[in-house]
């Protein structure tokens, strides 16, 4: 049962302090800079793939962020339905947008890498295909938000779909994997152990991208909070007129 608590300020508790955001911005900047240095200067060229292998650090880290973002959508959606507080809806929405952004990056960097290393832009590899479906699911999530005009209804519908979509993802992944075993993939992912420097770079990229996600998320939440505040001020002005 949806229970709406009386929220005097729907956006209250959304807005992080400026100071916190500043330090996260600095940390993110430094981490991203270090990650860039490692990707382009520190790691040697890959023995077989050469230069193009470096796009992989962006590719995999973006995929990680997308998953992280959609996990947040899932949890925030459940919390919204359970508590009916606006801040969980704002969190789910913000996170979904960022997730779609990083999924798009995965879908752009993947084929670039694939063209060089597999000599074809696209393969119906389970991971790449699941990412594509993931992109469709969360674009659908954003479309639902656009189509429902009334804020509370929009939040409710989006939360329902956010839960449904996330539950669907593993089923999609496994069915695609079994499907590919019938139509064998010629090219397989190299399971070779990574060199030590590559592993280090990968880990730093992951951490840097995770911070980037948090930084973007906080900023996006602040935009939501400001929009709520504007809406409320308008409402109050209307009332006094």
């Amino acid at each position: 049962m949806p229970q709406q608590k009386p929220a005097t300020r729907p956006s209250a508790g959304l807005r992080p302090g400026r100071g916190g955001l500043g330090s996260i911005a600095v940390i993110t900047f430094i981490l991203i800079a270090v990650a860039q240095y490692m990707i382009f200067m520190y790691v040697p060229d890959d023995a077989t793939l050469g230069l193009i292998q470096r796009i992989f650090y962006f590719h995999v880290a973006s995929a990680w962020n997308a998953l992280l973002a959609f996990g947040v959508v899932f949890v925030a959606s459940i919390l919204y339905l359970a508590k009916g507080e606006r801040r969980y809806d704002a969190l789910a929405y913000s996170s979904a947008e960022i997730g779609v952004l990083f999924t798009s990056l995965v879908l752009i960097t993947g084929p670039i890498w694939g063209k060089i290393s597999w000599n074809q832009w696209w393969t119906w590899d389970p991971r790449l295909t699941t990412t594509l479906i993931l992109w469709f699911i969360y674009v659908a999530y954003l479309l639902i938000r656009m189509a429902a005009d009334e804020p509370e209804k929009r939040a409710r519908f989006a939360a329902v779909f956010g839960i449904l979509g996330f539950i669907d993802v593993p089923i999609v992944f496994f069915s695609i994997r079994w499907w590919r075993t019938i139509h064998p993939v010629v090219i397989s992912w190299q399971g070779a152990a990574m060199e030590k420097s590559m592993l280090q770079t990968m880990i730093v990229s992951f951490v840097a991208f995770s911070f980037l996600f948090v930084y973007l998320l906080i900023n996006r939440l602040r935009v939501e909070a400001m929009q709520d505040e504007v809406a409320q001020l308008k409402e109050r002005l209307q009332g006094t007129r």
């Binding site: 709406q4 009386p6 729907p10 009334e150 409320q232």
Partner: peptide, 9 residues
């Protein structure tokens, strides 16, 4: 009984 929809009471 109170009902709030979005910013509106």
């Amino acid at each position: 009984v109170s009902k709030r929809i979005g910013p509106r009471l």
